[in-house]
């Protein structure tokens, strides 16, 4: 196997992790905890395959994936900001909802409980989803750092009360940011589905949860998210490659990416520049984040 093929492969594997984590950064930078990343990935993977299967166009499939995950983001943000549901609970509910709905969709559209029929995908030399993902990293970095909207998003995440007192509409800013994040997660879901050219029930296999960890390890920064996603994908790739050779001990190698994540989590000390947004999980009118 040549190095360039391996590299392309690793980058393709990194896209779902990276995009999901990037969506998480958008959401958490605005102050909304988002454990629904897994559900968003799953729904967008399904929507993009269903989109291409229905219309015959991979581009429309991609759009459907982005739209579906964006809608999940909107729902999450609405539930948290307008209906006052605790963000962890809303995320939990949406994950369950995504799991159930994609299975129902599979059986309703394709009469199968495990997988969809194969689609053609883009069939291009370079996967547009990966390119879009890279663009999303750059754009996210730029918007959060250099634009007024990005400043508002960060303000809502750090100090919602202060933001409001300066005339920022916290609710609206958060809803926009989480929806935007959802759309980016959608790119990842589409990348995952088009990589396999079909949808399989539960195919995200915890990638959204890993992304959640990557958000924390990255210190909520888009650039590092991209790098970490690549590192994680590389470990994941090594793990798969090693498993064929190592037999039983392949299972131990399988834990490598996760142990690395744990070590990363432990290594990110609060303080320095890698702290969590201070208003994470905070409503406008309260000072402490509460679970229920």
């Amino acid at each position: 196997m040549s190095v360039s093929i391996t590299l392309t492969h690793v980058i393709a594997m990194a896209a779902p992790y990276g995009c999901a984590a990037l969506g998480g950064v958008w959401s958490e930078r605005s102050g909304v905890v988002n454990i629904a990343l897994e559900g968003m990935l799953l729904v967008s993977a399904f929507a993009s395959i269903a989109g291409q299967a229905a219309t015959g166009s991979a581009w429309l499939g991609l759009a459907a994936g982005i739209g579906a995950a964006g809608a999940m983001g909107l729902m999450h943000a609405w539930l948290v900001e307008r209906a006052g549901v605790a963000d962890l609970l809303s995320g939990l509910g949406l994950n369950l909802f995504a799991m159930g709905m994609t299975r129902i969709g599979l059986s309703a559209l394709y009469g199968s409980s495990s997988n969809s029929p194969s689609v053609a995908g883009f069939g291009l030399a370079i996967e547009p989803t990966v390119v879009l993902g890279i663009v999303a990293v750059v754009v996210t970095q730029w918007v959060l750092r250099k634009t007024v909207f990005g400043l508002h998003v960060r303000a809502c995440g750090e100090a919602p009360n202060a933001a409001r007192s300066c005339g920022v509409n916290v609710t609206r800013t958060r809803i926009l940011a989480v929806t935007m994040g959802g759309a980016i997660v959608g790119i990842g879901g589409a990348a995952l589905a088009f990589d396999l050219r079909q949808f399989q029930s539960g195919m995200t296999a915890g990638r959204g949860f890993v992304a959640l960890a990557l958000v924390v390890v990255s210190g909520w920064r888009p650039g590092r998210v991209a790098i970490l996603a690549l590192v994680f994908a590389l470990l994941d790739w090594l793990q798969i490659a090693a498993q064929e050779k190592l037999g039983v001990f392949g299972f131990i190698v399988q834990t490598l990416p996760y142990v690395a994540t744990l070590v990363g989590l432990a290594a990110v000390r609060p303080g320095r520049r890698s702290f969590a947004p201070k208003g994470l999980g905070q409503r406008e009118d309260q000072t402490d984040p509460k679970l229920c």
Partner: peptide
């Protein structure tokens, strides 16, 4: 599963 999700979110709300 979907019903469970509805129950969780509505009760939390």
């Amino acid at each position: 599963d979907v019903l469970k999700a509805v129950v969780i979110i509505v009760v939390a709300w």
